[in-house]
């Protein structure tokens, strides 16, 4: 009798262990296209940052700068953030001087590259037009994803971007907090 009971216990334990591994396997594979790939995060932007004038309105600083080095990677509020040393080449809005720290939401975390949808991680040695907002506590300038890190490939593009965002700054639309409307 005792033998039959222990056999039953053994079978039950085996079934439970098998079910656990099947569930764990399904969790690992749940809605993932492939392991170790890019994980995109989907932001709800507070305003239409694809509009240059609105982007200029919400940015504290707009400038051309060259990425000199990656300084670090901090996981803030669950999302990895990457910090870069950027040499300011020309201010368009604001008055940054010399080397500043630019922070980008995104970076490597647990074998995956986390990025805001449509964005790419900054590359050392590349020049960008940056639109940023200041974080006084961290002493860094967080870029606006996608629209606030435009790669500058040559002088023609640089001059075009300077003209475009100088005009946008002149016509900036300051950010206003939304109030509920039945749109």
């Amino acid at each position: 009798m005792q033998n039959i009971l222990s056999k039953k216990m053994g079978v039950a334990t085996l079934i439970l262990v098998t079910m656990f591994f099947i569930y764990a396997f399904s969790l690992i594979n749940r809605d993932s296209s492939s392991p170790g790939k890019i994980v995109y995060i989907s932001p709800s932007y507070v305003t239409d940052v694809s509009n240059d004038s609105k982007l200029a309105g919400i940015a504290d600083n707009i400038f051309i700068g060259e990425v000199k080095a990656q300084l670090g990677n901090k996981k803030q509020d669950k999302v990895p953030e990457s910090q870069f040393k950027v040499e300011v080449i020309q201010n368009i809005k604001g008055s940054l001087i010399g080397a500043v720290t630019v922070n980008q939401q995104g970076g490597n975390d647990s074998g995956s590259l986390i990025l805001v949808e449509g964005d790419s991680l900054l590359e050392v040695g590349r020049t960008y037009l940056f639109a940023t907002r200041v974080n006084q506590e961290q002493k860094w300038n967080t870029l606006v994803p996608v629209y606030g890190d435009i790669r500058v490939d040559n002088d023609v593009k640089k001059n075009d971007l300077i003209d475009r965002f100088t005009r946008a700054y002149k016509e900036e639309i300051p950010f206003k907090y939304s109030k509920g409307q039945n749109k």
Binding site: S33, I41, P43, N141
Partner: peptide
């Protein structure tokens, strides 16, 4: 205050 989003969804593989 340095972020320009008010909501963020992240879908993790695991």
């Amino acid at each position: 205050s340095d972020l320009t989003w008010d909501g963020l969804y992240t879908n993790y593989p695991v």
